[in-house]
Amino acid sequence: MINTPQQTKKLQSKLGRVRGLGSTREGVHHWWAQRMSAVALLPLSLWFVYSLISLTGTDYDTFIAWASEFGNSVFLVLLVVTMFHHAQLGLQVVIEDYVHSEMWKMGMVLFVKYGAVVFAASAIFAVLKISIAG
C-alpha cells in the first residue's frame, strides 16, 4: 500500500501540485503541445494531400501560381510551422526513450530542435519568396 495515488500525492508540495509540476518540472506542457499541434495538423495535412493530388504533373509556373495565391501561402506556412513543431516534440520523446547516455540524449535533442528551426525557417522563407517575388 506504499505506492497508492493518495500516498504519492502527499509527497508533493502544495505549490508543486498547484503549478501542476511533475518529476520533469514542466507539468503537462509537452504533452498538451503535442495534442494541440496534432489537432491542427488534421485539417492542414488533409488540405496538403488534396492540394498535392490536384498539383500532380503540373509544371513550375503552375506550381508557383498556386503557391503564391494568398490562402495557399498562409496554409503552407501554417503547415510548415505546425509540422516541424509536432515533429520535434515527437522526436524528442523517441530520443529520450531510447538514448540512455545523458550527453548523447541532450546532444541529439538539441540537434533535432535546432534542425527543426533551421529547416522550418528556410521553408517559410521559400514560401514568402514565392508569394512576394512570384
Binding site: Y60, F63, I64, F119, S122, A123, F125, A126, V127, I130
Partner: peptide, 8 residues
C-alpha cells in the same frame, strides 16, 4: 522544406 526551397 527541400521541395519548397527548390521552388523558391
Amino acid at each position: 522544406a527541400y521541395w519548397l526551397s527548390a521552388a523558391a
